[in-house]
Amino acid sequence: MGDGFDRQLIDFLPRMRRFAFALTRNVTAADDLVQVACEKALAGKARFTAGTRFDAWIFRIMRNAWIDQARRRKTRGETVVLDEEFEFPGGDSRAETETALVLKATLAAIAELPDDQRDLLILVSVEGLSYREAADVLDVPIGTVMSRLARARRKLGAAVGIDPPGPRSSMRADGVQGSDSDG
């Protein structure tokens, strides 16, 4: 432990910020949350089991800290103002290449997802947690993980134009979705 843990934590900051932003949708609150989670992680260092996933452990701390803050806000009747532009820090590439545009559209679609679906998409599809690990981070049954994640993926697929599943023989070649003229 010791140095290894500390270095791991520092190296993990970009990914913590990414998840924190997904949770909070507010840059300031996100960095606040990262710092609070780091404090908790360091204080709870002894409870981290070597050989288990460091990222899943941290994500769970972050998620719990966020829930905790949200609960306290709720009892006080506070509201959190979301950033007007839900733009992931670093996701605002100015490049207009096709790849950049695809990335942008994808991020925009992820931003549109309901919170619980987005959290799962990030934990599983982006961070590579298993369904089981994601279920543990979020404290939900694995069946919920699967149904939410499937919904998230269907929405994302539709939003970025990955053809919705359908028969191969459809009018896809026309590429004109939403046009009724082919009826």
Partner: peptide, 16 residues
């Protein structure tokens, strides 16, 4: 494909 896209797009944000 949606998983690939999500990962690609989100990983681009890590450079922040």
């Amino acid at each position: 494909e949606t998983a690939d896209r999500a990962k690609q797009a989100m990983d681009a944000t890590l450079s922040a």
